[in-house]
Amino acid sequence: MLLITCPHCGPRPELEFRWGGEAHVARPADPSALDDRAWSEFLFVRNNPKGLFAERWNHAHGCQRWFNALRDTHSDKFVATYPAGAPRPDIAAEDAR
């Protein structure tokens, strides 16, 4: 079970959280302006890297807040967690090891 550090509550077991997919995929301000291809990219296409991945987590059984995390998908190490809306920390994969 992962140990996840909620930026608001501190380290808590994974049981308390819900995963929310890739982070920093903003909903388009005007979806009607997107053609079908662009809209389907937004809806369905996500990155799935081996290595650092910015992903959304919700502290569902805690403060219920959404936040973002940088996790190494290979090692499952969390490099950083940060509040929703904050920019992705500038950490390179090699620095995270």
């Binding site: 959304r56 959404w66 929703a84 809306g85």
Partner: peptide, 13 residues
């Protein structure tokens, strides 16, 4: 409720 919270917190704070 989860979907509402998600949009409220992350898309329309």
């Amino acid at each position: 409720l989860a979907l509402m919270e998600d949009y409220l917190q992350t898309e329309w704070p």
